[in-house]
Design a protein around this nucleic acid. Structure first.
Lengths: 338, 338
DNA sequence: CTGTTAGCGCCTTCAC
DNA sequence: GTGAAGGCGCTAACAG
C-alpha cells in the first residue's frame, strides 16, 4: 500500500491534522512544524490520495470535456486550448468521445455528472437537440460549446454561425461570383453544424440579389474530407458548374480541393473555395484555403471562465457568450479586386 | 446532496448490502429482491458515487494517456483508437498533454501514478530519455508507446522505426532516385522520433551503394508543417537539388509539398516525397502522399491488452511488442517501374 | 440469500 | 497553534 497521510504524521511525530495543515498551507502553522512535516513528506515520498481528498471535499478539480471525436482536427485543436488553459486554472480535463450521437452524449453526461468524478462539464453537443438539452437538469454545471444552444437553459459559448456564414458568402458575392454552391449535411436534426451556416449562406445570396439554385446545394452525409471529394464531383458534373463553393467546414473544402485538382479545375480562377473553422491544415493546402476563423483560444478561455464561476457558486441566469470570428483570406478564393 | 446507496436501501426496505449486490450483480440475489431494489433505484434516480467506489475498491477503471499534444494529427488519431478500444474494455481514458517536455512528462507521471486517479498509464514519451524511463519505479503499470524504449524496464508497444525508415528509403532507391534527402529533427536527446528513422535512412542508402550527402540532411526544430516548408526551401536552394525527400513524419512532408508547389517543382516527376505516420490528411494532399503506415488500431489494442494484463496482476518480465507497418504508396512518389 | 459493520484516506469540526 | 474523532459513499468481511 502507498504511504498515507497518517504515516507522515507518525514519522514526524505530529497529528494528522498538522500534516493536512501543511499540505494545504492553512492558517497558522509554526515554521518548525512546517519544516518537520515537509521533511517527513520528502523522506517517505508521500503524495496525497486525490480520490480520498475528493470524496471528502466533494470536489475533484477535474472538468469533463465531451466532444464528438478527438481525431477531428477542429476538436483536437479546441481540446488543446482547453487542456492548456484549464491547467493554468489548476484544473484537469477528462476528455471523452461521444461520436456525436445523442444517446451516447446523454449517457456520458449522465455518468459524468453523477459519478462525482468531475466538478463540471464542457459539452460540444451534436446529437442532442436544443430541446433535449434544455430539459436536462444536470447536477453539476454544464457549459455548451459550439452551434447547439439550449434555449436559455444552459450557459453557452460560441460564435455567431449565421453571421459568419453570411460574411463569407457575402465575400464571394462581392468578388463577383454568381453561381455559388454550398456543401452541407443532409437535412436532419442531427446536423446542427450545417443549419445555421446554410441560413447565413441563403441570407447572403438574397441580399446580393442572387437566387438559391437547389442544384448548387450539395448535401453530404458527414463533414469529412471524402464527403467533400464526392460532393465536389457531383457539383462538377452539373451542366452549369458553380464558380464558387462555400463548404460548411474545412475538411469538406479540403476534399473539394483534392477533387478539383484531379479534374484539373483551376482554383481560384474557375472556382473559389472557402471553408470554415480555420484548422491548422488550411495554411498548407494547395492552394491555401480561405476560411472562417473562430477564435478557439477565446472560446476555451470563456468556457472555462464561465464554468469556473459556476463552480464557485454563481447562480446567475445562464449566459450566451459570443466569440469573435474573422475571415481569413488565402489563395483558394479571389478578393473583390481580383 | 445526491441520493446515496443508503437512501436506496431505506426506500426499498433492505440493507445496503443487498443494494450493492444488485448494482454489481453479485452471487445469488432473489428475483424479488432484485426487482424491489431496481424499482427504488429508478424512483430515486440513483447513480453510484464512483469516487467512493474507487476509494473502497482500490481501483478506478480509468487509465491515463500521456501524450505530447492532442492537436497533432498522429496523436489525435491514436487517442481516438485508444479511447474507442478502452471503452470496449469498460475503461475510461484520462488524456493529458505533456508538450513532449521531460519535466512535464515526469511531473504528470508522478501525479497520475500516485494520486490513485488511474489504474495504469499509457505514455507516449518524447522528452524523457530511455535511461530516465528505465529508472522510474512507477507504483502502477506504465506501458510505453512509440519510439522511446526503456531498456527492458517497461512494457513497450511500437513499430520497428529503423526497419520502416529503411523500407521506405529503399523504395526510393529502387525507384531510381539517387539524391535522396531527408528531413529530421536537429540532433539532441529530445528528438527520439528522428533518430531511428535517420538510422534506417542511412542504412538503406548504404545498402543501395549511395553515399550520405550531408547537404541532403535537412534539420528542423519541430515536426510541424511549417518546418517542412522551411526545410524544403533550403533543399531547393542547393546547387544540386535532391530528386527525392524522406520526411520523418507526414506533417513535414505536407509542408514540403506546399513549398514545392509554390516553387513550381513537379511532384513526383522532379522530386518524390514520402512521409511517415499515414495520418488521414495524407489521402487528400496534392498530390496524395506516400507514407509509412503504422497500424494505429493495433498499437492501441496491444497497448491496452498488455496494460489490462498488468492490471489483472501479471508480473511477467516487461515485453517489447512490435506492431506491423506498411508502405502506403500514393501519388507523391513514383514506383520502381515508373 | 441477506443484514451488520468496518474501514478505503482524507479533511475538518470540535475541543484544548 | 495542535490533537482526537467523525464521516464523505461505497464494498466486502463476517455472521446469520
Amino acid at each position: 500500500m502507498a504511504v498515507r497521510l497518517r504515516d507522515v504524521a507518525d514519522r514526524a511525530g505530529v497529528s494528522a491534522r498538522s500534516v493536512s495543515n501543511v499540505i494545504n498551507d492553512f492558517h497558522y502553522v509554526s515554521p518548525a512544524m512546517r519544516e518537520r512535516v515537509q521533511a517527513a513528506i520528502k523522506e517517505l515520498d508521500y503524495q496525497p490520495n486525490l480520490l480520498a481528498r475528493s470524496l471528502r471535499q466533494g470536489r475533484t478539480g477535474t472538468v469533463g470535456f465531451l466532444l464528438p471525436e478527438i481525431n477531428v482536427p477542429y476538436f483536437g485543436e479546441l481540446a488543446h486550448q482547453i487542456v492548456e488553459q484549464a491547467s493554468e486554472l489548476g484544473l484537469t480535463v477528462l476528455i471523452d468521445e461521444t461520436g456525436g450521437e445523442s444517446h451516447r452524449e446523454m449517457a456520458q453526461l449522465e455518468v459524468m455528472s453523477r459519478s462525482a468524478l468531475v466538478d463540471g462539464i464542457l459539452l460540444s453537443a451534436l446529437g442532442l437537440s436544443g430541446h433535449q438539452l434544455a430539459q436536462l437538469r444536470p447536477r453539476i454545471p454544464v457549459v455548451l460549446l459550439g452551434e447547439r444552444v439550449a434555449g436559455s437553459a444552459l450557459d453557452h459559448v460560441g460564435i455567431d454561425n449565421v453571421a459568419a456564414a453570411q460574411d463569407v458568402t457575402q465575400y464571394l458575392v462581392d468578388s463577383g461570383r454568381t453561381r455559388i454552391a454550398v456543401m452541407a449535411e443532409k437535412h436532419h436534426p442531427l446536423a446542427p453544424t450545417s443549419r445555421p451556416r446554410l441560413k447565413g449562406y441563403r441570407a447572403a445570396l438574397a441580399s446580393g440579389g442572387l437566387a438559391v439554385d437547389p442544384q448548387l446545394v450539395a448535401r453530404v452525409d458527414h463533414l469529412r474530407r471524402q464527403d467533400g471529394v464526392d460532393a465536389m464531383a457531383r457539383l462538377l458534373a452539373l451542366p452549369h458548374r458553380p464558380d464558387a463553393v462555400f463548404c460548411v467546414n474545412d475538411l469538406l473544402a479540403i476534399g473539394a480541393l483534392s477533387e478539383l485538382h484531379r479534374q484539373r479545375v483551376r482554383v481560384p480562377e474557375e472556382i473559389s473555395v472557402v471553408g470554415f473553422d480555420d484548422v491548422e491544415e488550411c495554411r498548407f493546402t494547395i492552394p491555401t484555403l480561405s476560411t472562417v476563423a473562430p477564435d478557439k483560444a477565446e472560446i476555451a478561455r470563456m468556457a472555462l471562465r464561465i464554468l469556473s464561476e459556476r463552480l464557485a457558486g454563481s447562480s446567475e441566469p445562464p449566459r450566451d457568450l459570443r466569440v469573435q470570428h474573422r475571415l481569413t483570406l488565402r489563395d483558394s478564393s479571389v478578393g473583390a479586386g481580383g
